[in-house]
Computed example of a mutant assay.
Amino acid sequence: MLTEELSRLLKEAELTKEDLKAILLDHFVDEDGDLDLCYLDFSDFDGNIDISGMEVKKNLDQYGQKVGGSLYQGGQEVQGDLYQAEQKVKGCLFQDGQQVEGYLYQGGQKVKGDLIQSGQIVKGDLYQDCQRVQGDLMQNNQDVKRNLFQNWQKVQGDLYQNFQNVKGDLNQKGEESKIKIGQKEALIKGCKEYLKTKLQYYTPEDLKDNLYIIWHLKYVIADINSKLGYGEYTCTDEKEIIDAVFTA
């Protein structure tokens, strides 16, 4: 806590937020030129903490926050990327009304309640792979200008696919492999090289069950396949490649 003398001087000076900003920049900028306000412990303060409306020229880091109440992060305007990874939330996680010019990644979510993703407007592709749902999976009233892929579904209850309006082809059968000799081996090798880069963050056992890693492997396969100049492959081939990466 502040000494009585320092507290008295600050009150007499009628300290403003601009004064506080100047104090912080004078005393809490580290050797890298960054303002370091990490690990401030307000657990003995009974009020709320409001840090809204800040304007930051470069990066704003908000990692490892421990919040006893709710964490509000609404109305952010970000010129670069917005990272919200590995959140642990006992209540609800709201991500509504996002406007994203790049990619929106939502991989590896573990949700005990409901996961609601309604009213998405996507100019590119919408990937919803490797979902594990103990309740119902509802994908109604989709409006897709190109292709709708729904492969490798495992359903213990009923699978409803009613009122489809398809201008192209409707394929509901197994596919014959289009993969060529040597292509599968090259893709498996490339995927294993990618996984090696993740071992500093995950154990080999964790990689097998990490839905984000499995989802990202699909991009790795497509990228390697394109760079090596191989022909097309089917979704069944893709699954066999990913299975082989973890079993070979």
Rank of each mutant, 00 (worst) to 15 (best):
S177A: 05
A222W: 00
R8W: 04
Q73V: 10
Y83D: 13
T236Q: 14
G80W: 06
K11R: 15
L126R: 04
Q172M: 15
I242S: 09
Q120G: 02
D237M: 02
S177V: 03
D114K: 08
K145I: 08
Q65M: 07
T3S: 15
Q172W: 11
K21C: 06
F45A: 05
K218L: 04
V155A: 06
K227A: 09
K154P: 00
I188A: 12
E12I: 06
E185R: 01
S70R: 11
K184L: 13
F42S: 09
S52N: 14
R8N: 14
L25K: 11
S52R: 12
V29W: 01
Q65H: 08
G229R: 02
D206L: 05
K189E: 15
L137S: 11
A22F: 02
K198F: 01
L159H: 09
D30S: 08
Q156G: 13
G108C: 01
A22C: 03
Q109I: 00
I49V: 15
F149R: 05
K21A: 15
S226P: 00
I213F: 00
K192A: 01
E4W: 04
L137C: 07
K58Q: 10
L24Q: 05
G80E: 07
D169V: 06
L20N: 09
K11E: 13
D61E: 12
Y105P: 00
L40C: 05
V111Y: 02
N225D: 07
G108E: 00
G168P: 03
Q128K: 07
F163Y: 13
T236W: 06
L40W: 04
Y233V: 01
Q62I: 11
R8D: 14
I49Y: 09
G168E: 09
Q139L: 14
Y219I: 07
Q164W: 04
W152F: 15
L228C: 03
A222Q: 04
E240Q: 15
D61L: 14
L217M: 06
F45G: 02
Y233S: 01
V144W: 09
H27A: 07
C38I: 05
Y201S: 10
K178E: 14
K88Y: 04
K112Q: 11
K189M: 08
G229A: 03
E185Y: 01
W152E: 14
Q87G: 07
I242N: 05
I179P: 00
S226Y: 00
T3M: 08
Y201N: 09
V166P: 07
D129N: 14
D44M: 08
N165S: 12
F42N: 10
L211H: 03
D36C: 08
D223M: 02
G74K: 15
Q98F: 04
Y72M: 11
Y83E: 13
Q156A: 10
V111P: 02
R132F: 03
Q65S: 03
I49F: 12
Q73S: 10
Q117C: 09
A244W: 02
K173Y: 07
G182D: 10
L35T: 02
